[in-house]
Design a protein around this nucleic acid. Structure first.
Length: 220
DNA sequence: CGAGTTTGACCGGCGC
DNA sequence: GCGCCGGTCAAACTCG
């Protein structure tokens, strides 16, 4: 499994303030742009996946999974408390994903604490909180108001712990790739520079990518 | 019996 | 100040 992620190639993307170069695992890159009708958005700003290949990979993997077995890597996570000082403009990241079921297994254990009908959408919004003591990460899950086939998942905060892989995680894999595991996602995250770089950098990259996508939307 | 879910109540922010 | 709305709380309930 992890061995398949040993090969990388770099992909460079233009974004606000310059270009980003990501080392992309070949195993993931093969499915990077299989789907082209989904978006990734950051801080509520829609971003074309081409601006953020790592998330594009995630989305593409999602598209390839069946309705009852899919998972979503956490958009941001910290390896330890040393990242507690993380202070990007916002650590809120959302994914819009086509799925028949709403509860996305991202490797973390969530406890539902609320459900609310919101005015902006005919569909109810569900509120989840990371069940790990001391971790205040939350996520909101709701169906896309315009297309109920899509689920909008918004993460708010950063995990201050590793994924509780195998500990009540439900046994779902992290990626569509065969035999993918929590370690696979961890490697993917590192490979794409989202975790090997400080989470601070990850957050700013996300933000920059979103901003770039937003500001140059008309050119797409 | 413990963990997780449901659901109505409550609270704070914001616009008018 | 008031009402609306999104987010959270917490007691009751369900499930394994």
């Amino acid at each position: 499994m992890a061995a398949s992620l040993g090969l990388f190639h770099h992909e460079t993307y233009a974004a606000a303030g310059g270009a980003y170069s990501y080392p992309v695992p070949d195993a993931v890159a093969s499915s990077l742009f299989m789907a082209d009708d989904d978006d990734v958005f950051v801080d509520g700003v829609a971003a074309r996946r081409s601006f953020f290949p790592a998330l594009g990979a995630v989305a593409a993997n999602f598209m390839e999974l069946g309705p009852s077995e899919y998972s979503l890597p956490p958009p941001v996570f910290a390896g330890g408390n040393e990242y507690g000082e993380y202070s990007s403009p916002s650590s809120r990241i959302g994914f819009r994903t086509r799925s028949e079921v709403e509860v996305l297994d991202d490797g973390f254990k969530w406890r539902k604490y609320g459900k609310k009908a919101v005015k902006s959408s005919p569909n109810p919004r569900n509120y989840y909180r990371c069940s790990v003591a001391g971790c205040g990460v939350k996520k909101r899950v709701e169906r896309d108001r315009d297309d109920p086939r899509y689920v909008v998942t918004t993460y708010d905060g950063i995990h201050n712990h590793a994924t509780p892989c195998g500990a009540g995680g439900g046994g779902h894999s992290y990626l569509a790739a065969p035999a993918a595991t929590a370690q696979t996602w961890s490697l993917l995250a590192q490979a794409t520079g989202l975790a090997s770089a400080p989470p601070q950098a990850w957050g700013s990259q996300l933000h920059a990518a979103a901003t770039a996508a937003h500001s140059s939307e008309s050119s797409f």
